[in-house]
Structure formats: C-alpha cells, structure tokens
C-alpha cells in the first residue's frame, strides 16, 4: 500500500506547518521509551532532522520508501539505526523511535472526523511502518557486522605464537578449540616455524577448558604437520582431569612428548637440544 501523490503533498503541507510542535512531541514520546539514556536535546535534534527528511520526501512526491525521492530519508533512517545499534539500544527501542512519529502526528491532527483525513492517515501510517521496518533491517545488519568483527578479533587475539627460547616457539591455547580456531592455530604455528626456523614447538593447553576427541584430533593434526615440516612438537599443560578424560576416551598421543607443565616442556626441549649438539 503506497501513498498517492495527493496524500503525499497534503502530508508535506501538514509537516511543514506543524513542524515545531510535531518534532517536540515526537522527541518526548521517544524519550519516554528510552528512559533517559539519550539527552532530550539530542533526541530533539534527531527527530527534527528525521521530520525534515520525511517532509522533503513527501515534497518530492515520494509515494513509496523505495522510490528515488526518498533516498535522503533512507540515508537518515540508516544513520539513526546504525547509531542506536552501536550505542547498545534494543531493536524495539530503535523501532519505537520511528513509530512514535505516527502517534505524534495523530495527536497533532486532533480528532479525526472526516473520512478523507482518516484515509490519509492510514496511508501515511503504512509509509511510516515501512520506514520502521527499514530501520529494523539496517539495525540487524549493523549488529551482525559488529558480531562478525568481534568474532574475527577474538580469533586474532586468542592465538599468539610466542618465541620462548632460541629455536623454541610456544602456542598458549586459551578457550574452546573448534575447527575454525584449530585451523588458524595450525596455520599460524607452521608459518612461525618457517619464519623463525625453530625446530621445536610447544603447544600449551592449560587454557583449554575441555579436551574431547575432536580437539585431540586437531592437536594431533598440527603435530603431524609440524613433523612433516621437520619440527618437533611437545604438548604441555595437561591438567589432571584432562589426562583422565584423554585416557577414558582412548585418545592415543603415540610417540608425541606430553608434559604436565610448560616449564617441564621447555626443560625437555633444552635437554634434547644439548643432546643434538645444537
């Protein structure tokens, strides 16, 4: 359901003639919903900007939110929901910022007694609904991109490869090890081995809350890949419960050296180094 050009122009007129009280009432309604988390001056600025955008869109003969004339309005709505999403408001609080426009307009219109005004208002209401839905869409889009960014940052942050000694690098694993993270850890460790020419790597799993068959599989793959490249891996930081789980699950680490603590692993590597005469 879209606005007819007549309805649009009538509303453009209404919005321009009652601009001040409408924006003020709108800001009040939004403020009630947000419980004082944004200053009234800030809200007032936002509502009058939005109102101007609506007015311009109607002036330009926008009958639908997707039309060319409403481009400026869409940009404004997009900006509003982006800000709301970044400031941590809920989806409802964001949508209400637009829906309140309908309520404010109805109050300004006063009592609706003739059928023309009522029909106008229903068409206008549909337009605002679509605007609110658009807001909701961009809100979700912003939140999703935020989540994706954070997941990526987490991936980057949680897998450092540190040099522990001459020819020894260590990966302190922290957090649950899923396939994606295991892949990142494996790639980064192997690349570091090449870059530093370290023949020993220590994988420390002190920070891994649980080791199941899948996690063990990932660690084993990393160790085998490192061996193929000519480096030896030692697994350290195995807590008592984890050792029991590993045995209970029947996971075989084969001839891979496992140590209880990182210190033990380092001592072992240094003694191996001495024996090899390096």
């Amino acid at each position: 359901m879209s606005l007819s050009p007549d309805e649009a122009s009538r509303f453009a007129h209404l919005l321009s003639s009652k601009a001040e009280p409408l924006a003020a009432r709108w800001a009040e309604l939004v403020a009630a919903g947000l419980r004082g988390r944004l200053s009234s001056a800030e809200l007032r600025r936002q509502t009058s900007e939005l109102q101007r955008a609506f007015q311009q869109a109607f002036d330009a003969g926008a009958t639908d939110l997707t039309s060319e004339a409403a481009a400026e309005l869409r940009a404004q709505l997009d900006e509003l929901s982006t800000n709301r999403a970044r400031q941590g408001f809920t989806a409802t609080e964001t949508a209400i910022s637009v829906y309140a426009f309908k309520e404010a307009t109805l109050e300004i219109l006063g009592s609706v007694d003739d059928a023309t005004t009522l029909r106008d208002y229903v068409a206008f209401s549909g337009f605002v609904d679509r605007a609110a839905l658009f807001t909701f869409d961009s809100y979700v889009r912003v939140r999703e991109s935020l989540i994706a960014d954070q997941a990526e940052q987490l991936l980057e942050l949680s897998t450092p490869v540190v040099k522990l000694w001459e020819g020894v690098v260590a990966v302190p694993l922290v957090g649950t090890l899923d396939s994606a993270r295991a892949q990142v850890v494996m790639e980064r460790l192997l690349q570091t081995l090449v870059d530093t020419g370290s023949p020993y790597a220590i994988i420390d799993i002190t920070g891994v809350p649980a080791v199941d068959t899948q996690v063990a599989q990932h660690i084993l793959k990393t160790v085998v890949a490192a061996r193929l490249m000519g480096a030896d891996c030692i697994i350290s930081g195995i807590r008592p419960q984890i050792a029991q789980t590993i045995v209970a699950l029947g996971i075989e680490f084969g001839d891979i050296a496992t140590k209880a603590s990182l210190a033990d692993a380092l001592r072992y590597v240094i003694s191996q180094n001495k024996r090899a005469g390096r």
Binding site: M186, L190, Q191, V224, A225, L228
Partner: peptide, 13 residues
Amino acid sequence: VVGMRPAVAITLV
C-alpha cells in the same frame, strides 16, 4: 626432506 611449506604439510595431513 627440507623446506616443506605449511600449506603442503596441512594438505598432506
């Protein structure tokens, strides 16, 4: 055998 690339090692595994 020396200088195996990480990508090659991962693929072989």
